[in-house]
Amino acid sequence: MKQDRSRGFWYGVYALVLVGLVAGIWGMSVRVHYDWNWRDVPQYLVSTSGQELLAPFDAYVTITPDGKTLSLTEYGGERSASYTDFEQAYAESGDLVFRDDLLAYQAGLRPGILLIGLWMTLKLSAVSLVFALLFGLVAGLGRVADNPAARQLSSNYVELIRGTPLLVQIFIVYFFIGTVLQLSAFTAGVVALAVFTGAYIAEIIRSGIESVPRGQMEASRSLGMSYAQAMRYVVLPQALKKTLPSLAGQFINLIKDSSLVSVMALTDLTKAGREIISSNFRPFEVWFTVALMYLALTGTLSYLVRRLEKRLAHE
């Protein structure tokens, strides 16, 4: 009973601290005369201006007098097209439009720039993760290998990557390797993130392998299995299961690290935020929104991993 009361007291303290923090942030914004305006934010998540209707070919535009039908006649060609499902026309009758010119906005919702940025962040992280796991597995196996070349190379890779800042690596990949090999911004981003995360995953996998008792490898070899077979069927399954929490943590780090690729011409969530701010000058609202979106992503992920862990622990 007494313990219940003191617990209640400390929950009260917790709530007070939270309220104090929020009040502090608000107070600071008042001091700099910041004019909060959250109403501008939703349109960057979901845009109500509808889908863009683009010209499929070079053509002359005809719009019926009631303004409901827009027809195209190809310039110097035979094709024609007509549209009725649009809200507001941007072209006028008699205009000559070129391919991919904006004709009109169609009715309905479309994802705003923040959601598009979030999707890019997700795509970038997922693709990078696949390659990072691959690099990490190879380098991790190299770290525990007998072969001196494999061991030295993997160890150099890990030291080199862990000893230099990710931002510098991104610049090197984008401006040097990317230029030489003509990589797109997305490819360059994936390369930089995968190589970086791979080094950390290599260490996780190495420690996972080393945590499996030696006897497992010995028993496998005594049955006539090759080193590779013993790794594949006996050691790695146990090592990966043990390292799953650390691997998940590394994936969450990867999502957060991916914000650094916004220095390249790649509109991820962070870059989307910067683009919005440069047009509406509302840094507080936008950065808070961006932070919340990252938090939603990483929070969902760690929840899924906890569930997976529980399932594995049951087996």
């Binding site: 008792p213 006897g215 497992q216 010995e218 028993a219 496998s220 005594s222 006996v234 146990q238």
Partner: peptide
């Protein structure tokens, strides 16, 4: 082996 070394 002394420690069995079964695959857990």
């Amino acid at each position: 082996f002394q420690q069995f070394n079964l695959f857990p």
